[in-house]
């Protein structure tokens, strides 16, 4: 087939519209988040004292952190799924998220007597946190890795990792309303491990399925 012939075929296919990346991400979230939400509500359950802790700064911080990580993941996915678009300013959002975490950890170390540091860090459900964040992230991640085939990432691994960060942050946000460990020391350890695990899974699978 000569290149001129190929161009003929490509222009005949012009009417078949490709999916823009933002719509692909939206479709994935539309499919994946309700499943994660269902697992939260029906299998894990939202913590019963949620209305009494709703104004607690430690409780609120969990959401500040996870939502800032979610924003970073979303921005990174949108950028890294397009060719010639490096992470750029989206890394700034990731830095904001990390900065919030450091600030909260610093504050906690100041206000909490040092004898309480370790119990606060270990909480009472560290293992559950590490397992349940990836569990809640699974459906959003699978959906993202499926719909992001519409993208054309310079690095399929990095785009996959960004999808993992987004899915992990979604999992963490939902998990935060179930989990009763609110210390920033706990969040900085176990939430970060949970989100990182999902990010690594995204990196590994993305490298295989997001090639184009």
């Amino acid at each position: 087939m000569k290149t001129e012939n190929l161009i003929q075929a490509l222009s005949a296919d012009l009417a078949t519209r490709p999916t823009p990346v933002p719509r692909a991400v939206f479709q994935a979230l539309w499919a994946g988040v309700p499943i994660a939400l269902g697992i939260l509500i029906f299998a894990l359950e939202v913590r019963p004292d949620i209305w009494t802790v709703i104004a607690n700064p430690r409780f609120l911080f969990k959401f500040m952190f996870s939502l800032s990580a979610l924003a970073a993941g979303l921005w990174l996915v949108l950028r890294l799924s397009r060719p010639g678009t490096p992470a750029g300013p989206a890394l700034g959002m990731l830095a904001v998220s990390a900065g919030l975490l450091l600030l909260a950890v610093g504050t906690e170390l100041v206000v909490l007597p040092s004898g309480n540091w370790l119990p606060a860090l270990m909480g009472d459900r560290a293992l559950a946190c590490m397992v349940l964040i990836p569990t809640l992230a699974a459906a959003p991640l699978a959906a993202l890795l499926y719909t992001l085939k519409a993208g054309a990432p310079d690095s399929p691994q990095l785009a996959g990792a960004a999808a993992g960060l987004l899915a992990g942050a979604i999992g963490a946000t939902l998990y935060a309303s179930h989990c009763t460990n609110d210390s920033p020391l706990f969040v900085a350890t176990w939430y970060v491990i949970g989100i990182s695990a999902v990010t690594v899974i995204g990196w590994l699978i993305g490298g295989r399925v997001l090639r184009w």
Binding site: L6, I7, L10, P18, V21, R82, A150, G151, A152
Partner: peptide, 19 residues
Amino acid sequence: EDVVQEALLAIHLKRGTWR
């Protein structure tokens, strides 16, 4: 010419990624 055709196919199939 293989690379040219591969790139043209990618430009076509991925034209939704150009903002």
